[in-house]
Amino acid sequence: MNISAEEIKKLASLAKLHLEESAIPKLTVDLNNIFHHIEVLKTLDLGEVPETNAIHHQSTVLRADESSMTFAKEDMLPTMPRTDEAGNLIVNAVFQDSDETTHAV
């Protein structure tokens, strides 16, 4: 099958990707080339062949369902987008328009 530019836009919206309009023609060509290539598999007679979704080996490693791993506050702060001097996470206000209005939590 051939996928159209419109369908690529639909795919992008499902994948939460914003595509530049200018990128779509080349992407349409590239994706169609790829789809034509992978669709060759549809010509195979696969009958009752079982699917493999993961490489199987020993039994699954299980641990007790207990909360054990904790992180120190100073380790977590660098992963936050914005923090104040006291080490509080700063988030955007939900009920106001301005991005400048922030609250520490």
Partner: peptide, 27 residues
Amino acid sequence: RRILIGTYTLSGEFDESLYHIASKVRT
């Protein structure tokens, strides 16, 4: 590109059958 292809091959609306076929070829 790969996210878009994966979205296509996992989407019932597009062509989910490809994922199952490929999983059989893997076997």
